[in-house]
Nucleic acid binder design. Sequence first.
DNA 1: TCTGACCTGCGA
DNA 2: TCGCAGGTCAGA
Length: 267
Amino acid sequence: MPELPEVESVRLGILEGFLGKRISTLWTGRLEHLLDPQSLALQGLVGQRLQAVERRGKYLLWRFESLQLLAHLGMSGVWGDSAPRGKHTHVEFHFEDGSWLSYTDPRQFGYLSLHSLSHTLHRWEALGPDALSRAWNAKQLWHLCQRSRLAIKVFLMDQTKVAGIGNIYASEALFRARIHPERCAQELSAEECATLVGEAKAVMRASLKKRGTTFSDYRLTNGKGGGFQKFLQVFQKEGEPCPRCRGRILRLEQGGRSTFFCPGCQG
DNA sequence: TCTGACCTGCGA
DNA sequence: TCGCAGGTCAGA
């Protein structure tokens, strides 16, 4: 579900509400699908003060005084401070000042892993540069594309190449850059790579300003949805007119996922 | 590099 | 009842 703009919006909400607070008690429900088998028990967080929350791609890294919690929202994960405990609540952090934050995840595709600060987090280290960082640029993209036979849409969603782009923003960025999603990454020119990086960053920054895209599950920590779904140009718009050329938007399947594009604009 | 699997809910 | 859903990984 959530891609870079959504996860960054969640991060900002957590910082705003909980940075510097100490966990006094912790409740856990079903965790067998969510907690990494190598993780320390989450009860270790009791007594720990939240000192920072970092993000790389779609992962959040919560830094406490002597522990770090790596977390991914999967498709349906939500960190919230208002919804009451329900069937799909898996964790609740209760803080010293009486505030609380819970994690709910109906599909349980999310991920939680708690470790000491010195522990190397392999999932985190394996990620490519964050899609909004300077490290992801035209030169880097072109260099990696040269060695890849993947379709460019599939390439963009490979988190080891660039971290944070998922199904929504891959389709939207390629539409804006006028690049067909099935083009082989290897065939992109340096100029096209520059355009693609620029458009991908632009659409994610625009989405971040609206606090992300909400179709159903994704929620900010305050329970509200994002607002960018009104500004999507092709995603989930099969059969509708292209906002640029008025041609019909098509859907195709790549790697088992839907891709939306305009055959008229994306040559 | 590709496919299927993980899990649940929703809408057709 | 079936197909689909914004993600990721293991295994072929």
